[in-house]
Amino acid sequence: MTGIRAGISGYLAAWALHRITGIALTLYLFGHMYMRSGAYGSSAIGETMSGSVGKFADIFLLGIVTAHALNGLRVVMHDLGAPTRFRKPLMVGAAMAGFVLFALGARSIWWCCG
């Protein structure tokens, strides 16, 4: 294919990702409230979250939050007047900023906590 692109665009993928991460965060909140309610046991929480499984869970959560937040920020910027012609730079910028934040955060979680 030369002049015309095919299939799903990055913008549609970003929209789908925003919905998926939004649903994931909602489900996480219920899980978080359940664990914090005392039903799970405070010592059990500490044991679970200080191990590798807990760190992986935190890193996964960080990824979801970063993707959702930066994607949302990109959409808000357009709603506030960022010109449509900047949609690609904003998309790439959000993705790169998200990747850097995720990498730094994941590094901190893995090496500094627990």
Partner: peptide, 21 residues
């Protein structure tokens, strides 16, 4: 929701999402 599919597919290159915003 600012997905930009309309802008991407407009054969006249109209900034539809921008106008809706």
């Amino acid at each position: 929701h600012g997905i930009f599919e309309c802008v991407e597919s407009c054969p006249k290159g109209i900034d539809i999402t921008g106008r809706i915003s």
